[in-house]
Structure formats: C-alpha cells, structure tokens
C-alpha cells in the first residue's frame, strides 16, 4: 500500500446514543495519511460525538474504531495523535501557566519510546512555537494572550509531540474572523508542507473549504463522505451556497 494511502482512522458501523437518545447511526468512515477532512453538519448532528469516539473519549454503543491499524482498545501510541477539544481556550482564567509550561506539561507527560531530556524539551517547545509564529511569547502567561494566540499555543502543544494526525473540534469558536482565517491557513500549511493529517469538526464550511480535500457530512447518519471536489459539485454543496442552511447552521 502506498504511504499516502495508509489508513490512519477507520470507523466501522459506529452508533451512539445519550441515555437512549440516538446521536450517531451506523457511521462508516476512514481517514488516510495526508487527508484534510472536514466533518460538517448542523448543530446536534453528532460531529463532536464522532470526534470523541475517534479519540477514545466516548465508547460507541455499537461498532468499532481502528487507529493506525490497531483496535482503539489496544492502541498505545497516543503521541501520534494531537487533539484539540471544543472551547479549549475557555480554560480557567485564573490558571497561572506560561505558554512554555503549557507545552512542557504535555511533552513531559506523553509516553514516547524515548523520553526527551530537559534541553530537548526546551528545543521542541521553541520549535513548535516557531511553527505557529509565537516564539517570542514563550514566557508570557497563557491568560494574557488573545483567543487566536491561545489557539495557536494549543496547536503548538499538539505539534510538539510530533503527531501524525491532528483532530480539532470547532477550534475557532469565539475567535475574530481574521484570526480564524490565519488559523486555518496555518492548518492548511501544516497539511500540505508537513503532510500532517487533519480531521476538523466545523459548522462553518465556508472558511475552511479552500484547505480541505475530503468532506464528511453528518446528520446522525453519514449523508456524504468523499472528495471535496466532488462535494462541491453535489446538490448538498449547492444547497449550502444558496442558503439552504439545513446542513450548516450558525448559532453564536
């Protein structure tokens, strides 16, 4: 199998319900190396639930998930996975932590085949901050940064463990539009230049569609899963363009 075709995540027949109320029904989906997959759908369509199932935060009622070819239950190489949750920047504003400490805590915690030394940790922190353009902010308190900068720090934290895939849940909620554009440009660059596989849950397809190459459209069931270019020619995309917002809704 070509390296670019390597399957990183496979979701097979996954269903999930919250206290008997179905959230996901029979989802089959796969993510391959180099993909930039956008999971889109209206509020309550199960996007976040699906992402949480993919990273093992929720256990599916039915079906299975494979990560890097291994059943999720047996998966141990968590340093290969970077995850940024919804409203990740809504952390406790009194939390006294510097930008460098946010990344160091993760770097020193994640189990890896070889544990990095102190100098290596420092280098990796600076390297990750350089990638997101925040190397001069390393010593600043996290709560003194703007929402957009905080989001970049969390990306740097995820990148510091050199993951092969980044999964993000509505990462730009509450961030101003120019910062959102910069953020998605950065993700696009990481995907193209560093071959980083990205799975992004979003309700705002408009802002990400120039970066993604695959789309999964969700409404409890998987309505569409395929190439972005084909999606653009589909009826569902036209519905979006012409204001048929039943797939995508904004509630801010």
């Amino acid at each position: 199998m070509k390296e670019s075709m390597k399957e990183i995540i496979r979701v097979e027949g996954v269903s999930f319900s919250y206290d008997g109320v179905p959230a996901l029904l029979d989802i089959n989906l796969s993510v391959h190396r180099g993909d930039f997959l956008a999971i889109i759908g209206p509020n309550g369509s199960g996007k976040t639930t699906l992402l949480k199932i993919m990273v093992g935060l929720l256990r599916p009622g039915q079906g299975r998930v494979w990560l890097f070819g291994q059943p999720l239950e047996d998966f141990k190489q968590w340093h290969k996975i970077g995850y940024i949750q919804q409203k990740a920047t809504n952390f406790d504003p009194i939390f006294p932590i510097s930008v460098a400490e946010v990344i160091a805590a993760s770097l020193n915690s994640v189990s890896r085949p070889v544990k990095p030394g102190r100098r290596q940790v420092r280098n990796k922190i600076m390297e990750a901050l350089q990638t997101v353009g925040l190397e001069s902010e390393a010593g600043k308190p996290m709560n003194s940064l703007s929402g957009g900068q905080q989001q970049r720090v969390l990306i740097a934290r995820a990148l510091s463990t050199e993951p092969e895939i980044l999964l993000l849940d509505e990462p730009t909620t509450g961030i101003d539009y120019p910062s959102q554009e910069n953020f998605y440009d950065l993700l696009g660059k990481l995907n193209k230049q560093k071959q980083l596989t990205i799975v992004l849950v979003t309700h705002d397809y408009g802002i990400v569609n120039r970066h993604v190459n695959r789309v999964a459209c969700l409404n409890q069931k998987l309505v569409y899963h395929g190439e972005h270019s084909e999606f653009c020619q589909s009826d569902r995309f036209r519905e979006l363009l012409h204001g048929g917002h039943h797939l995508i809704s904004h509630r801010h």
Binding site: G56, L57, Y83, I84, Q85, A88, F91, R157, T161
Partner: peptide
C-alpha cells in the same frame, strides 16, 4: 489540571 480532555487523549 489544565486540560483534562487533552490529557486523557494523550494516553494518561
């Protein structure tokens, strides 16, 4: 303490 969900996904 800072980010419980991310810590869990990191395998802790």
């Amino acid at each position: 303490t800072f980010d419980r969900e991310a810590a869990r996904v990191s395998g802790l």
